[in-house]
Design a protein around this nucleic acid. Structure first.
Lengths: 226, 226
DNA sequence: CGGAACCTCCCCATTTTTGGCGAATAGCTG
DNA sequence: CAGCTATTCGCCAAAAATGGGGAGGTTCCG
């Protein structure tokens, strides 16, 4: 695997940027459409292991909050109410994660989602000032790091990217909008059987086992615009 | 509709930024998960009408290319081969769209996708230089404009954002991965009947007419992480 | 403490989707 | 021009999903 070397490069960027940005921790975490995820970060390995083992991503307000948000966000503006979230925060601070944090969500095609985060223990006032003056640079740094990260896996999913024919896209798009076969066929003015051919060829191209899977893959691969 | 006023604001930002960036045309175009789209741009109304009427988004290499790309991209690096693309380019240049262009794709939660574009008629050499020196500012401007754009529709889809229960997410996620009901139920260690309850309640919450629709909505709303 | 939301289990009838056969026309590309 | 892909049509039987009922337990928030 030559990806090991470049993942190290990414880690190098991360630690380098931490010093540049003068923060305690800096994290880049990415999940692509195939579920593969990798991260480069400065947290302790113990905390990372714990986080994965406990599947804390499901609880972590930073992940949950950023996943449905466009703008970069200060951790204080997230929803920390709820028992699991509060417990999580307790453990996190014990593990050395700063109480202050700022995260930039990044989205790519194929449903890729990444998070670029800085965290620290400054006081509220200082942190406020810090984020204000660094938002722009943090956004650009997030783009930069994500770019580097994408270079690691380039080739693997670009090559596998299948193209769908216009009719196949039409078909899957309507199915994704909730139409069933009969309605879709009527809308496209074709026989239901013809529609089946499209669905099946799309399924084949996408390596999907059924219609729902095909639609899901079409969406996450960015082939459909619903 | 009070959105008319703010859409004018957006248009104001666009024309303002065009002068700041010293380009012929500047375009912001956004599509959200519900299919609503709006744009603020400096192209001629005739060209815009033509574009919509002909559904050129399906052909336009800028749209198609950026939709499956993360990085900002120079138009020259896109794939202009293929008959429809070449015809489209001919019409576009006739309509006053510059031959040079640079587009920044922007993605938000809920499947939102927007495109921030500058276009001009500079020579290749000058354009090369121009983009090199302005990438950073263009990225930031794209974020800024998108932020303004999101403010227009804020409230409409934030309020409608339904939460799914953990089990509902589990269920839809596995279905999106291609598992059928039997396999999904087994994976989740529950009876198939129980699984149905989740699927149905998720369908209800999402206003979906069938499983495929529910999965599609879950994905485009950013509720599922496949 | 009481309501709300979540998780879990079951049956029957009907509708919808899928699997497995095959085949013809048109258009673009090498 | 040959070859490939896209588009379009059909039938039958099996498998899967949906609709419409009902019911008991836990957990959490106000």
């Amino acid at each position: 695997m030559q990806s090991a070397a470049t993942l190290d490069d990414l880690q190098g960027h991360i630690t380098g940027l931490r010093d540049v940005f003068d923060v305690e921790h800096l994290v880049y975490h990415s999940v692509n459409s195939t579920g593969q995820q990798y991260a480069a970060l400065t947290y302790s390995p113990a905390w990372v292991a714990r986080y994965i083992e406990q599947d804390y991503a499901r609880v972590d307000p930073v992940v949950q909050g950023c996943y449905r948000r466009f703008h970069p966000v200060d951790w204080r503006r997230l929803d920390w109410s709820g028992k699991p979230a509060r417990e999580f925060m307790g453990e996190a601070t014990d593990a050395g994660v700063g109480r202050q944090g700022f995260s930039v969500p990044i989205r790519g095609p194929s449903g890729q989602f990444a998070l670029f985060t800085v965290s620290d223990r400054r006081t509220d006032a200082k942190w406020e000032k810090y984020t204000e003056t660094h938002v722009r640079d943090l956004i650009l740094a997030a783009h930069f790091v994500n770019q580097k990260a994408l270079e690691i896996e380039r080739g693997s999913d670009t090559a596998a990217m299948q193209k769908l024919s216009p009719r196949e896209i039409d078909a899957l798009t309507m199915l994704a909008m909730g139409y069933n076969r009969a309605q879709t066929a009527e809308s496209l003015s074709i026989s239901e059987h013809t529609l089946r051919v499209y669905i099946e060829s799309a399924r084949f191209k996408l390596g999907a086992s059924n219609t729902t899977h095909a639609v899901a893959r079409g969406l996450t691969l960015g082939l459909l615009v619903v």
